[in-house]
Computed example of a mutant assay.
Amino acid sequence: MELTIVNVQINSIVGRMSYHCDLLFRVIDIKMKDGKKIAVLYGEDLRLMADSPFEDLVPIDPDQRSRISEEYRSLEEQSFELFQQDIHLLRQKQEYQATHGYNQEMSIFQIPGRVLHLDGDPNYLKKCLDLYEKVGLTVYGVHCYEKDMPSQVVPLIEKYRPDILVITGHDAYTKSKGLKSDLNAYRHSKYFVKTVREARRKVPHLDQLVIFAGACQSHFESLIHAGANFASSPQRVNIHALDPVYIVAKISYTSFMEQINVWDVLRNTLTGEKGLGGIETKGVLRTGMPYKPITEE
């Protein structure tokens, strides 16, 4: 056991013996509590934050990490394929409508919404930005610690003028701190709620600024009441790191003339309705014609 303690350091990938190493975590801080070393952990695939005594931690080598993560990679690939099918159908529908049932030859162009993504974890932000690029969206990504988000969000909105705002990072519900209805029993939900409220003071209309907010086990009801269009986590379950991207992409590629059915947004996420929810929301995509490539005079 001493070897385990010596080998765990900042950025180590670990599992928790008390949970049979069911999830992978990254050590982001080490602190002392009541004379014992405590590791502060961020989930590698799930947006979960936790504390753990050192004696409960097991270092995970690259081979073990690959095996444990294989299931998540498979789910990510499946979600991406389903999302691509959705986007293909949406584009076909938009092209059909723009050309009056393919009866007129017109070249169209599309302008997806502008996205601002605030993330409390720089590693997750990079993963999300990579996926945004893969699905063809340009996104302004900002790493911002959860507690700083309420003071930073309005200046960032003024700078980037987004159509969609993502507020996420890490969170967790701690039973010993209170009931699930108590906002103070959550790591970062109160900061997410404050950030949503500040954003709504700046842009009150739900369809002028679409907001996704929350992380693992976040206080869903408070986030929705604060003004989020979509949030986590109705059943206080963990959500996957990339779930916000699929929600944002669906909104970005849906016409502003159409209302999005909530289930249509959630069905291709990795977590589904237990971890994610929302309200009816309009898309943000705008279609124009004719398409004229930019050329030098």
Rank of each mutant, 00 (worst) to 15 (best):
P122F: 10
Y124V: 02
K127G: 04
K127T: 11
K127C: 05
K127I: 03
D130N: 15
D130G: 07
Y132N: 13
V135H: 09
G136S: 09
G136M: 07
L137P: 05
V139W: 12
Y140H: 14
Y140P: 00
G141L: 11
G141H: 13
V142F: 05
H143G: 01
H143Q: 12
H143I: 04
C144Y: 03
Y145P: 07
E146G: 01
E146V: 03
K147L: 08
M149N: 03
P150N: 12
S151H: 09
S151I: 00
Q152F: 03
V153L: 14
V153K: 07
V153S: 08
V154I: 14
L156K: 08
L156M: 14
L156T: 12
L156P: 04
E158Y: 06
K159I: 03
Y160L: 06
Y160Q: 09
R161S: 10
D163V: 07
I164P: 06
L165A: 04
I167Q: 08
T168G: 09
G169L: 10
H170D: 03
H170W: 00
H170E: 04
A172G: 03
A172N: 14
Y173T: 06
T174V: 12
K175E: 15
K175L: 15
S176Y: 15
S176H: 12
S176E: 15
K177V: 11
G178T: 09
L179W: 11
K180Y: 04
K180L: 14
K180S: 07
D182L: 12
L183A: 01
N184L: 14
N184P: 02
Y186W: 01
S189I: 01
Y191P: 02
Y191M: 00
F192M: 04
V193D: 03
V193W: 00
V193A: 11
V193P: 03
T195N: 05
V196H: 10
V196A: 02
V196W: 02
R197I: 11
R197D: 06
R197T: 15
A199Y: 12
R201W: 13
K202S: 06
P204L: 03
L206C: 02
D207K: 06
D207Q: 09
F212K: 06
G214P: 00
C216I: 00
C216S: 13
C216G: 12
S218E: 00
S218K: 04
H219K: 08
E221G: 12
L223W: 01
I224Y: 03
H225S: 12
G227F: 09
G227Y: 01
G227Q: 02
A228H: 07
A228C: 06
N229K: 04
N229T: 14
N229V: 10
A231G: 03
S232L: 07
S232K: 03
S233Q: 04
S233H: 05
